[in-house]
Design a protein around this nucleic acid. Structure first.
Lengths: 239, 239
DNA sequence: CGCGGGGTTGAGCGAATTCAACGGATGTGG
DNA sequence: CCACATCCGTTGAATTCGCTCAACCCCGCG
């Protein structure tokens, strides 16, 4: 059920038997959502967090002209809004980009397990800081990388994040997003994403078609993106 | 000494006498730094966090060609690297943009006070989530706002953040940054920042000269930026 | 007095956008 | 089963916002 989540935590921390059990028992219920559904509205008081089990969600902020910026993608195993535990309401929306299944974890349960297990408190605090690290790397893409490198960086990141939770098959992984979704992540237009993906394919770096990605040449793709996975905090990177 | 910090915390939470005392006693020492000094190197194991008392620091990530993206600015009262408490090392550098004074808080002291005072744990967890919220708003600027709105949003944010800690004088505040610093925050070139600031001044919105900002027309500046301070979590915004 | 950092301005360029059209796939209702 | 609508992807042409390159200014400072 929440195995993807446990895999994600175990990729960065040691988890005791009791802690694992506490996490399992904190799930109040399971929810299903269709694609393009707002899961967590912005500026609304919240009393639970949403642990994504299957599908892809995102955090997004809208502008008045209808454009929006996606600030992070969430895959199976991620809490989409763990930060609502301390923030009480969110400054952005959380919405589904595909059909999704999620576990609902009441803030009351989070409070209980983080007080009983200080180690879990640290682990979940860490998890929200990891989200922030991902957002920083996206800021680098948005602010300084040309379109090619932006998309390259995004696919490099997703490959690693999906690999951790066992959702890649070698260089292939499912990513059922539209080109417009990718554009809203990386601050581009869908038209330019289309052309840039064509270029990346022609160069033999990356193929993305009908919701499936193929990292053809990982080393060169990473080089284009200047991708360094240290920001994903998988351990052993501190010097 | 750390009054700016206490003011920042009190703008979002209630702080007991004992908690305040615990915070005060967690400071190990005070450090001074010249401008353009790396305070926290990236990818290096850390055992303390840095509470900025005076001056301006930033978080920045460098690219191979020498360009860099500043992902957040820090002012008096901010922890520049509180997230290092859980992350152990950072994916970015923290450096001074001006001369700075800072309080060094050992992670050991943070561990002690957050275990003794669960409320402080929540407050500091919140603080790192607030940093993430600021980074999200910057992502919106970087990805979707044109240069004018980017700079407008930045100055709107800084006015609020400085006001909280008592560092504004009405519509005026000191911001001893260069136009190149602003460019590195907002993903622009110093040349374009220069022209955009000129435009903002000519429109009677904002004047920025020799390290001092004057928000001439706050309402119109906020309107240009589509600035909504809710993301700064000053309370009473949840609906 | 020369030097360097920061600011300012102009000219030309280029990456990405806008606008528009079209194709393929999918779904739906008559 | 076909007509039609919709969504997503694709491509071309024209445009534009911001960049690059370069020159010059001002001012504080050694």
């Amino acid at each position: 059920m929440i195995d993807h989540h446990l895999a994600k935590l175990r990729a960065r921390s040691v988890l005791s038997r009791e802690e694992e059990e506490a996490i399992r028992s904190s799930v109040a219920r399971i929810e299903d959502y269709p694609a393009d559904r707002i899961v967590v509205p912005s500026h609304r008081s919240l009393d639970h967090s949403t642990l994504l089990l299957d599908g892809i969600m995102c955090r997004s902020k809208a502008l008045l002209n209808g454009e929006r910026q996606i600030t992070e993608l969430h895959v199976a195993g991620d809490f989409a809004d763990l930060h609502s535990f301390t923030l009480k309401y969110l400054d952005h929306e959380v919405l589904t980009l595909t059909r999704c299944r999620a576990a609902i974890v009441p803030h009351e349960a989070l409070r209980a397990i983080t007080e009983r297990f200080p180690g879990l408190a640290r682990i979940y605090w860490f998890a929200t800081n990891l989200d922030a690290a991902i957002q920083r790397e996206w800021a680098v893409s948005l602010g300084r990388r040309p379109a090619r490198a932006r998309l390259a960086a995004l696919f490099c990141e997703l490959q690693v994040r999906l690999e951790i939770v066992g959702l890649t098959e070698g260089p292939y992984f499912d990513l059922p997003l539209t080109q417009t979704d990718l554009a809203e992540c990386m601050g581009l237009t869908n038209v330019h994403v289309n052309r840039t993906l064509r270029d990346l394919k022609q160069e033999g770096l990356l193929a993305f078609r009908s919701g499936r990605a193929h990292v053809i040449d990982r080393d060169r793709l990473r080089s284009v993106a200047e991708f360094d996975p240290a920001y994903l905090y998988l351990g052993r990177e501190a010097r």
